[in-house]
Simulated scan of single mutants.
Amino acid sequence: MAQKTQIILTDDIDGGEATQTVTFAFQGTSYEIDLNDEHAALIEESFSEWITNARKTTGRSSAAGGAPARSSSTRASSGPKRTDLDAVRAWARDNGHTVSDRGRVSNKILEAYDAR
C-alpha cells in the first residue's frame, strides 16, 4: 500500500497559505516562522539595514545566524581568510597582544584586527 504525506504550511502572521519557512536568530535564540512570499519579503526588508551593518559569525551549521534566510541562501565568511592569519599575528604582536605561531587566533584579537 502506498502512502502520501502532505505538509501544508500556514502563514504565522495571517493564517493564510505559507510558501516558506524563514529562520533567524536573535540574542542567542533561533526562531522559525512560516510565511507567504509577501511576508517573507517584509521580514527580509526590515532586517536588511541591520544585516548590512552587522558582522557574520562562524560556527553555525544552518542559516540561522541572525538573518532571515531561505534554505537556498549562501553565507560568506566575514572573518579573515586562513591566508591572512600570518598578517593578523604580526599585527597582534606589533600591538602588544600575545599570540601563538600556530593554531587558533582568539576572537578578541580578530575583532581588534578588524576594528583597526
Rank of each mutant, 00 (worst) to 15 (best):
F26N: 00
P80M: 06
A18E: 06
D86R: 12
T57E: 02
N107T: 14
K108D: 15
R75A: 08
S48D: 13
D34T: 00
G66Y: 00
T29E: 13
A67Y: 02
S78D: 15
E49M: 02
W91F: 09
N95V: 07
K108P: 03
V22F: 05
G59I: 03
A54G: 00
A92K: 01
D84E: 15
N53I: 01
R102P: 07
G15I: 09
T10R: 13
G15V: 10
H39L: 06
A63Q: 04
S100G: 14
T5R: 13
E32F: 08
I51A: 04
S73L: 02
A41K: 09
T5N: 11
A87D: 15
N95Q: 09
G59S: 02
D94K: 12
T10L: 11
M1E: 12
A63C: 06
I7W: 07
G65H: 01
L110W: 08
D101W: 04
A76F: 00
K108Q: 14
G16R: 11
S62F: 03
K81L: 13
T29Q: 14
A40C: 04
R75C: 04
T58H: 08
D34Y: 05
E111R: 15
A18R: 01
R104K: 14
A76N: 06
A18K: 05
F47H: 09
L9T: 06
I13R: 08
F24V: 01
E38Y: 09
T21Q: 11
D11E: 11
A54D: 04
G96D: 10
V88L: 09
G28C: 07
A115C: 10
G103D: 12
K56V: 07
L42D: 14
A67S: 06
E32N: 14
A18G: 14
E49T: 05
N53T: 05
F26T: 00
S62N: 14
D37L: 08
A54R: 03
D12A: 15
R70F: 00
W50Y: 15
K108I: 12
D37K: 12
Q20R: 11
Y113P: 04
F24D: 01
L35R: 00
H97T: 04
W91G: 03
S48H: 08
S77I: 01
N95R: 08
T52H: 04
T98M: 05
L85G: 01
T83I: 10
S77P: 01
I13F: 12
V105S: 10
A40H: 00
A92C: 07
A18D: 05
G79C: 01
S106V: 09
D94C: 02
I13Y: 06
N107M: 14
S77L: 06
W91L: 10
L42I: 07
T23K: 05
L42P: 01
S30H: 09
F26W: 08
G28W: 05
D86C: 00
